[in-house]
Design a protein around this nucleic acid. Structure first.
Lengths: 225, 225
DNA sequence: GGACATCTTTACAAAATCTTTATAACTGCA
DNA sequence: TGCAGTTATAAAGATTTTGTAAAGATGTCC
């Protein structure tokens, strides 16, 4: 199974270490940033599944980072803070924070809140299995079946297909797809998409030359049905 | 704007009153239940947009209620509890609670967490659809249906139709249409419009020679109805 | 270090779309 | 009726976008 990736943005090395140990032992992949700037860069070049953001950073205020992230990043952001005043909490939540925990936090609770947020954002809570015609996608086990036979997909192929499936029927723009799968800074790399849509079609379509599932919307993007 | 409806399940009348006052003054519609059973019935007969659930109920444990609700209810459930032990919190979150606040809670924070949860859950709701006679335009999914059958439009055709639909009934001048779709420097290319209105009519009109949707306003522009 | 899988990049063919041209049809009016 | 201005349609040409194969680059696992 593919690990969910968590980005920690915190300037205190001890906290980062503590979080890293706890998260890794719970099967998350951990990426770390010690400044807000570094965090923004890391998340843009490779979007994590969730961000743990400390509010008290040295270079930029966590509130600013939160706002900048939310201009394009729509997965969970959990705020960690020594601040326990209501104003901070309310402003963070209203600026798009998914949750807010005050330090010192209880590890078990943090992990539960992370599980809850990740589950919601992967929208695996309602239907862990998405079915579209003869295609079945198990979002929890990350297994894809075509006519009840498991098919082997690379990690990127799977991510792309899962994103399509979660937005069945909608036209997804090139920009959006690239942003979600590769990261904010890849929005112009449309050729990636062509290649990967090509390999996906070979694997899931009856006849890749006349695709029934992944439909091209010329000039705009693709649509899954 | 339509008020979001919140169901309070709590056995303490004072807490219910306090919540009711705060929620109503923030423009929510409030429904109350003093027992778990009543809460289950109310939510089933008229599902609220969000549920505030007290864990310490007299008839059934809040954990049970939560599980029963989650069998079918997938909007936010925020737990309120005097219990501040980690086990309770973790178990509630893992059973599908959206959030968990310990009593006494700060009203401003609770309201912020409610706003945040409602916003997230409304994000995934269905997209707005513009309907004009037998034509349906889903602006989010970027899909156009005629008599419930999807029709294929090119990107420019879609943009033009969407612009028409957003201004149903109004006469849109050639200049305006060209400026919006092609750009400021194309304002004199009226022939483009004739070509594209032509292809659009072929696709959406019953009888393209006698258009019912895209009406020519000679010398001025077009009108959509 | 080498085999293997995967991702990135390049090049070119194929398809779809847009632009332009030509011509026909309509409209209101003298 | 005939004319001028406007609109509609078809189709050829130009351009953009997409699909595919394959070579190079990168990373991973023994």
């Amino acid at each position: 199974m593919n690990k969910a990736e968590i980005l920690i943005i915190d300037d205190e090395p001890q906290i980062r270490k503590l979080l890293q140990i706890n998260l890794e032992s719970n099967d998350y992949k951990v990426v770390q940033a010690s400044t807000g700037k570094e965090g923004l860069m890391l998340s843009a070049s490779h979007p994590p599944d969730l961000i743990l953001l400390d509010i008290g950073l040295p270079d930029k205020s966590g509130h600013e980072i939160l706002q900048e992230l939310r201009e394009w990043y729509n997965r969970p952001i959990i705020i960690l803070s020594v601040q326990d005043n209501e104003t901070d909490i309310v402003s963070a939540l209203d600026n798009g924070a998914t949750d807010y925990l005050t330090k010192p936090f209880r590890t078990g609770e943090l992990l539960a809140r992370i599980r809850s947020a990740v589950k919601r954002s992967q929208n695996t809570e309602n239907s862990p299995v998405i079915s579209c015609g003869n295609i079945e996608i198990d979002l929890v086990a990350r297994i894809v079946k075509r006519s009840n036979e498991a098919i082997k997909l690379t990690s990127t192929e799977y991510n792309l297909l899962a994103l399509f499936a979660k937005n069945e029927g909608k036209v997804l723009t090139h920009q959006y797809l690239l942003k979600e799968i590769w990261g904010y800074s890849y929005q112009t790399e449309t050729q990636y998409l062509r290649v990967f849509v090509g390999t996906l079609r070979k694997k899931i379509e009856e006849n890749p030359n006349n695709p029934q599932h992944i439909i091209t919307e010329s000039g705009v993007g693709y649509r899954f049905q």
